[in-house]
């Protein structure tokens, strides 16, 4: 059976949907094709229904027993991710488990948005290999793992001082 038709002007219909889509895009922190790192945390546990899923990021909401959960874990997670301009999604099926997907914007993307921001790349690869892949450019600070606290402190001091010297 054909669905019931609606009464609408085609151009206005396009305008309405187009504007709603653009609003949705602008409300998405990682929109505009910003590249991101994605981390999925998946369990095959009890899962949750939609009503529960919609409340999980609220402070003090917990399904764990009294004295077992603080209700703060996911609120803290959401706060941290939002401060990094990232995003988190939760997908769940009752009885089948839950998947949390976290999206962090790439440091490269953040640098483009905030050119003055000091960035220190940390990697387990040697800088030779990274340079080979065209990732490290002139003026990009790189810290190779493993490193000691004092080496980290020196690197951070170095890029912060360099930034102050530029008058940023």
């Amino acid at each position: 059976m054909e669905p019931t038709p609606a009464l609408a002007d085609r151009q206005q219909f396009d305008q309405v949907l187009g504007n709603l889509f653009l609003n949705a895009r602008d409300a998405s922190p990682l929109a505009h094709g910003a590249p991101a790192i994605r981390i999925d945390v998946r369990d095959t546990g009890i899962g949750m229904d939609d009503a529960t899923r919609q409340q999980i990021f609220e402070p003090f909401f917990t399904t764990k027993g009294v004295g077992k959960g603080t209700g703060l874990g996911l609120a803290v997670v959401l706060g941290a991710i939002q401060q990094d301009h990232g995003m988190i999604e939760a997908h769940s099926a009752l009885g089948r488990g839950t998947t949390f997907s976290v999206f962090w914007p790439l440091a490269e993307a953040v640098r483009q948005r905030c050119p003055g921001l000091p960035v220190l790349f940390v990697s387990g690869y040697t800088d030779d290999i990274i340079a080979l892949h065209g990732f490290v450019r002139e003026g990009v600070a790189l810290l190779e793992k493993p490193f000691s606290p004092s080496v980290l402190a020196r690197k951070v001091r170095g890029i912060v001082d360099a930034r102050s010297a530029r008058g940023a």
């Binding site: 038709p5 609606a6 002007d9 085609r10 396009d14 187009g18 889509f21 653009l22 998405s28």
Partner: peptide
């Protein structure tokens, strides 16, 4: 005019996808 909303959206999906960009 009387329109089949589902068909109308399906026709314009490509257009909407271009509008919001590849990241979404």
């Amino acid at each position: 005019v009387a329109v089949q909303v589902n068909a109308l959206i399906e026709d314009s999906l490509c257009h909407y996808r271009r509008l919001i960009g590849e990241g979404i």
